[in-house]
Simulated scan of single mutants.
Amino acid sequence: HGRLRSHPPVDTDEARYDAANRDEHIDLALRWTHYIGDWDIGIAHFSGTDRRPVLVPNAAGDALIPFYPQVEQTSIDVQATLGAWLWKLEMLYNDNKFDSYTAAVGGFEFTQYGIRGGSADLGWLLEYNYDERDERAPSALARDLFFGLRYSGNDIAGSTLLAGIIYDLDNDSQFFNVEAARRLDESWVLTLEARLFNNVDRADPLFYLQRDDYLELQLQRFF
């Protein structure tokens, strides 16, 4: 069945659309960007078929049917680069036939350059995810905190590491993620990927994945 699969499964063959012409509806997307000193600002609007479907149980209750509603969505994103600090904020308002809601994510990344006098950099990340729908949100990131670190060796081997934890402030569910890569020589690359779930609450959208912890070590050869 594959990993990270919903239960019940999503039946994409039965996808439904709000628009009469289904997936051939012509959408409209506009975006304006500007910068003021160290600040970058973007404002966007989207009118058309939502790329994130609402999952509706079928009549038998053994599958989820994706329904793509028509939406009007306005968003704003702000980013400030202040020395070693990178601050970000993204907010959106989505209006559709099922719901109208506000969602946002904001946080920072602080980078330590040339740690221990070497060439490697280490970044510390912190983000807060908010969705006004809270428990009604199809995403697991309704009121969650993300903390992570990003390591870049800046070496010939291209060593990289990204590790983090997402912590649900409502029910204490935790999701751990690790990604690492390093070239062994000109032809071989070693990669590591791990996904771990801990203390996942029954009300959390990730509950059906609670036993899907996995560790993948991959050795690739390029010609």
Rank of each mutant, 00 (worst) to 15 (best):
R3P: 01
R3W: 04
L4E: 01
R5D: 08
D11C: 06
D13P: 06
E14S: 14
Y17W: 15
D18N: 07
D23R: 09
D27K: 10
L30H: 07
L30T: 11
I36H: 09
I36N: 05
I36D: 12
G37H: 13
G37E: 14
G42S: 14
I43P: 02
H45Y: 15
R52L: 13
V54G: 02
V56R: 14
P57I: 07
I65G: 10
F67C: 02
P69C: 04
T74V: 11
T74G: 11
S75G: 10
D77G: 03
Q79W: 00
A80F: 00
T81F: 02
L82H: 00
W85F: 12
M91L: 12
K97E: 08
F98A: 05
F98L: 07
D99P: 00
Y101D: 09
T102D: 02
A104S: 14
V105R: 06
G106E: 04
G107F: 09
G107R: 07
Q112D: 14
G118T: 13
A120E: 07
W124E: 02
N129C: 01
Y130T: 04
Y130N: 01
A140C: 00
A140P: 14
A142Y: 06
R143A: 04
D144A: 03
F147T: 08
L149N: 12
R150V: 09
I156E: 04
S159C: 01
T160A: 01
T160F: 03
L162F: 02
G164Y: 02
L169D: 04
D170G: 00
S173F: 06
Q174F: 00
Q174D: 07
N177I: 05
V178L: 15
A180M: 03
R182I: 06
R182K: 08
R183A: 12
L184R: 06
V189N: 15
T191S: 15
L192K: 03
R195D: 05
L206V: 05
L206F: 15
D212T: 10
Y214E: 07
Q218V: 09
F222K: 03
F223P: 11
